[in-house]
Nucleic acid binder design. Structure first.
Lengths: 225, 225
DNA sequence: CTGTCATTCTAGTAATCTATAGAATGATAG
DNA sequence: CTATCATTCTATAGATTACTAGAATGACAG
C-alpha cells in the first residue's frame, strides 16, 4: 500500500462524518434523535419531511454509523448510535455558532419578546422548581420526556397545553423548555401561555444542554398527567 | 419569520461546517494547516493537489470560516481560524475512528513493522529526551517546527534526513514524529533510519495530539541545524 | 393466504460539487 | 510600463446528491 493510497483511504472515512452532517435536514433529524429513539414516521413528521425522503436521509446517517436502527413489528426505530454522537452534534453546533454570528442574530430575531431564561443559574432554577416556586414544563412529546427530562419538570406536550392550562398556576412563573436552543416548541408554548395571561418564559436549554452543563437528569414516565 | 423559515435558516448554517468537512482533500488541507500557516503553493504540494484545485478547496474552507488568509507580498498564507478548529478536526477524526474500525485496521496494515511508540507514557519519553537517552526527531518542514514542537525535539525535515544521518547516534533510540497518527513522514523517516542500522521508532502523536494530552509545547527556531 | 401498514428500494430529474484548464488579478522586480 | 510569479476567477465536463413517485419488502391482522 502506497502512502497516497493509505491517506486517500483513511481521509475518505473521515470525510464520511462531514458528508453525513452536510445537510440541514439530516442535522435536524440528528437533533430530534438526540432526544430519544423514534420511528421513521415520527422523524419525518418532526423534521417536516416526507417519509421516503426521511428514510433516505436516515440511510445516509446510518452509513456514517451515526444512528442505529431496530425493527419492532411493522415499525423501524432509529436512535443515535451512542452518546458521543449527541456530543459531536452539540460541538458542531457550537463551532457553527462561533463562526456565524448570523445564527445568534437570527435566533434573537425569531425569539424576540420571548424572554429567554438565563441559563447561567441552573442550580437556582432547580431549587425554585424543587420548592415549587416555579413550574417547569417539558413541552416535548411524552416519549421524549420519558427518555430523560429535567428534574421536577412536568410533561405537557404542546398539543396538550391548551387542555391542561386550567391546571397551571397563574401566580407562579412558568418555565417551558423543549429540545434545545433552536427548537421552537417552547417558544410556541410561552406564546400560548402569555396570551392567556400566564407568566411564562422560555428556557434555552434542552436535556442535552442541561446535561452537558453538569445538570442532573431524571427519567421515567410522567407523573400526574 | 415563521418557525419553518427560522429552522431552515439556522440549520443551513450548521450544515456549512459539515459541507466544509465533507471532502477528504479538504480535511487533508485542514490537518496540514493545523500544523501552522502555509502558502497556497505549499498547501497544494503537501496535499498533492494542483494549485488551482487547492485554492478552490481553500475557498470552501474559508466560506465556512474554518480558515483565515492573509496576503504577504505575492503570496497568500492560510491558517486555521482559531484553536477551536484544530480541536474540532481532532474530534471529527475521533468520531470517525470510533465509528469505522476500518480506519485503525488500514493504519495498522500501512504502518506494519513500523513500531509505534506507546503514547501512554508521555512523561517518560519527555524525561528520556531531556536526559539525552533518546533522540526525538521532528521530521516536518522547519516552518512547522518553528510554529510549535515537542520539547527537546530536533528539527530534521525528511528531505534533510539523508544528509544529517551522520550526526545521529547509533547507540540511542531515535523517536520520529510528524503531523499526527495519519501522517506518513515519520514512517518514511524510520524506514530510512532502520535501513541504515539505526534504532528508530515512530511516535503516533503530533504536536496537536501531544498538546491535547496535556503535554508541553516548545516553539522557536531550530537549534544547531 | 390476502390485505394493510410502515419502510425501503429503484429510477429519473434537477441541482450541486469536483477537477481541470484558460483568463484575469495583484504584487513585485527590473 | 512590462514581465513575472502566485493566486483567484470563470467556464465546463463528469460525478454525486436531493427530492419525487412508483414498485417491492417485511410484519402482522384477519
Amino acid at each position: 500500500m502506497t502512502a497516497r493510497h493509505f491517506k486517500d483511504t483513511v481521509y475518505e472515512y473521515f470525510s464520511r462524518i462531514g458528508k453525513a452532517t452536510s445537510s440541514p435536514k439530516r442535522l435536524e433529524i440528528l437533533d430530534i434523535l438526540c432526544q430519544g429513539e423514534k420511528s421513521v414516521e415520527e422523524i419525518a413528521r418532526n423534521a417536516q419531511l416526507d417519509v421516503k425522503n426521511a428514510s433516505a436521509h436516515l440511510k445516509v446517517l446510518h452509513a456514517a454509523r451515526l444512528v442505529a436502527s431496530r425493527r419492532e413489528g411493522k415499525r423501524v426505530y432509529y436512535a443515535v448510535a451512542d452518546a458521543t454522537v449527541a456530543d459531536y452534534w452539540m460541538r458542531t453546533r457550537t463551532i457553527a455558532e462561533q463562526r456565524f454570528a448570523e445564527i445568534e442574530r437570527t435566533a434573537k430575531c425569531f425569539f424576540t419578546d420571548r424572554e429567554i431564561m438565563v441559563t447561567l443559574d441552573r442550580q437556582a432554577l432547580l431549587g425554585k422548581a424543587r420548592r415549587g416556586e416555579v413550574v417547569v414544563l417539558d413541552v416535548r412529546p411524552h416519549s421524549e420526556y420519558e427518555q430523560g427530562h429535567l428534574p421536577y419538570a412536568r410533561s405537557v406536550p404542546l398539543a396538550e397545553l391548551e387542555r391542561q392550562m386550567a391546571t397551571l398556576p397563574r401566580n407562579k412563573q412558568i418555565v417551558a423548555y423543549c429540545r434545545g436552543p433552536y427548537c421552537v416548541l417552547s417558544a410556541e408554548a410561552t406564546d400560548m401561555l402569555k396570551e392567556r395571561g400566564f407568566r411564562a418564559v422560555r428556557l434555552a436549554d434542552g436535556v442535552l444542554e442541561w446535561r452537558a452543563a453538569g445538570g442532573p437528569i431524571a427519567s421515567g414516565p410522567a407523573f400526574g398527567g
